[in-house]
Design a protein around this nucleic acid. Structure first.
Lengths: 358, 358
DNA sequence: TTGAAAGCGTTACCAA
DNA sequence: TTGGTAACGCTTTCAA
């Protein structure tokens, strides 16, 4: 039904190669002939080489796969993730490469594995996917390049990595808080427990957390607390159902409404931290006075809300991930990049309220 | 280098077809043989049929292209867009189909056309793309199914459409506002003018707006104003640089800071409307009292902020778009769906301040 | 239940 | 500058 390269070649009495060249290597034939070919193609309704056939022949697809766990909506709810993706798109676009979204639904592991095995891509970017271990084997079997922003330790030598010092950055926030004299501290994170609920959680040892980013960020806080002479067991751990503002608010309520109210809440993402601010606003509590709050990521809303947070170069992270993927260096040292972070102090943090140290 | 189906076949002394069947049609061979084949494949590092080759042979790619204009980041800044995409993903995932993001950069039209011509997809979804007309020809030339949520009129009979009554819905919001006695009314939208700036704009005839959604939503407001005996020339038109909260706030400033302050601002998206609320908060103005504000879309933040808005079923819209694309009905009547909308009244609207009708 | 053969639509190489 | 030929890796009849 649809016209092929052959159709056009026949119509003009030239060979397939020539028509192919008209599209893919314009310098290989006379401009006049090329124009005639393109013209005839237009008349015949031939819209250029079939992308799939071209990919097969060339051995390059022109797309990279982006893996998510959880729903797409959930992934894009976090501005950090969106910025990262934007950076990734910048890099790939420049190389005429598209982005294929591969959502890995947790309730259908077989489907997820099939999706990975059957995705027509030149490489994978693993992102927003704390529990991608099951997928790893499938991906590696395809011997395609993979870049990740997580699990640098477990990633294996073949994997490309662009990351930040999660633990160190988080510790900076912790030090900022203990430096202000806070002693009734809470940390707020998602998926700290397998139960999906908003509220306090017992977490004897944060090093045992299975998900890399959670583990590192929470341990960073612990390190700061312990270094200041505090004890991890005094830190209240709050779990949010999902990484959303609403769940952040709901979880924070448990720290705000208890008799001995926490004077500082350190959230592991800005989205959660903004939820904390929502919960405080609803109670008439002043950020940086009654309760101090920190986030992580430095999304645009953080600035608007005066949130003290850890800045990470989200867009650049995506861009570098894309460049690494499309142009993987041989040198192992160049296959892993660690990007800088910084503490941005805004109005949501301040000295611990007087008399709160008891 | 990488193992192929042939490699596995040779290793076992069976034919290619049999190995192929082991993967694609398990019922065509004995379980024992199948297991042996899969086992050998694993040993040989063969990770299953090459997706591209399979696509070529089958004539189906297993991906649909999603077109954006503007940057990805910008597109995903609007929760409406994210919800729509989530719905689309739901539908495609169920059919083992991926989503290929195709960002069409405005400053590189040639690159954009190439991206469209070369995208390996089974269909296209056009979305968040007010000015996609240039792409239309390229897409149509490929004779692939296309679904759009915009431009139902210009779309052509072949195009699948899932839309809402933009003008009617917007008119509802307008009627709500004039019903409250407001007469100093402003409308706030993006890209009303080619100049990319925040502020008032002269717009003698909204019917002349080139972008469908802008035109329809603004005309809806005009209809309501005129029906109530008002005049379009009394309506202040504000342009926001981009569809962001910050630009919404900046543009709204012009309506809030003028001598005869607008008593009602109707934004064409919730994101812009939330920006208006930000600008009001900064000035100590009370929504629904000093100034009434409406939005459009009913994103989650709208509820949180008490924003009166038009609800549209964003996720369902995406889901239906996906289903239409993957299973296009022959019957022309079924190829176009119009989804319902409703006015959600919250606290951001109220009676016009006393004495404001002058 | 298994195998042989014929493409799917293109590009790359080499020769003319 | 142009054309012939041989893949790219797979699926799908159809026959055994």
């Amino acid at each position: 039904m649809s016209a092929t390269l052959q159709t056009v070649a026949d119509a003009l009495g030239v060979s397939r190669s020539t028509v192919s060249n008209a599209y893919s290597r314009p310098d290989q034939l006379s401009p006049a002939l090329r124009e005639r070919i393109l013209e005839t193609a237009r008349e015949l309704g031939y819209s250029g080489p079939n992308p799939t056939a071209r990919s097969l022949r060339r051995g390059r697809v022109g797309a990279v796969g982006v893996l998510f766990t959880g729903s797409l909506t959930q992934a894009f709810t976090d501005p950090y993730a969106v910025q990262f993706l934007g950076g990734l798109a910048q890099a790939t676009e420049r190389r005429d490469t598209g982005l294929l979204l591969v959502p890995l639904s947790a309730d259908d592991p077989d489907g997820a594995q099939r999706a990975l095995a059957e995705a027509a891509v030149d490489g994978f970017c693993v992102y927003c996917a704390p529990n991608w271990q099951g997928s790893l084997a499938v991906i590696n079997a395809r011997s395609l390049p993979v870049v990740t922003t997580e699990n640098p330790t477990e990633a294996g030598a073949a994997t490309l990595v662009v990351s930040i010092d999660e633990r160190g950055a988080s510790r900076t926030a912790g030090e900022h808080i203990v430096g202000f004299g806070h002693r009734r501290i809470a940390v707020l994170d998602t998926w700290v427990t397998t139960e999906r609920r908003n509220g306090p959680v017992r977490l004897p040892d944060p090093e045992s957390l299975p998900f890399y980013i959670s583990r590192e960020r929470i341990c960073g806080v612990r390190d700061a607390v312990v270094a200041a002479g505090g004890s991890w067991s005094d830190v209240l751990v709050l779990n949010a159902r999902d990484n959303t503002r609403a769940d952040g608010a709901a979880a924070a309520a448990h720290a705000l409404d208890r008799a001995q109210r926490s004077t500082a809440i350190l959230a592991t993402t800005d989205v959660l931290a903004l939820g904390v601010l929502d919960a405080m606003a609803a109670r008439g509590l002043r950020p940086g006075h009654d309760v101090s709050v920190t986030g992580f990521d430095d999304i645009p809303d953080a600035d608007r809300s005066g949130l003290t947070t850890i800045h990470q170069p989200s867009t650049e992270k995506g861009r570098i991930a894309g460049e690494l993927l499309l142009d993987a260096p041989e040198d192992p040292a160049l296959r892993r990049k660690v990007l800088p972070t910084s503490l941005i102090v805004r109005s949501s943090t301040g000295p611990a309220p007087v008399g709160s140290s008891s």
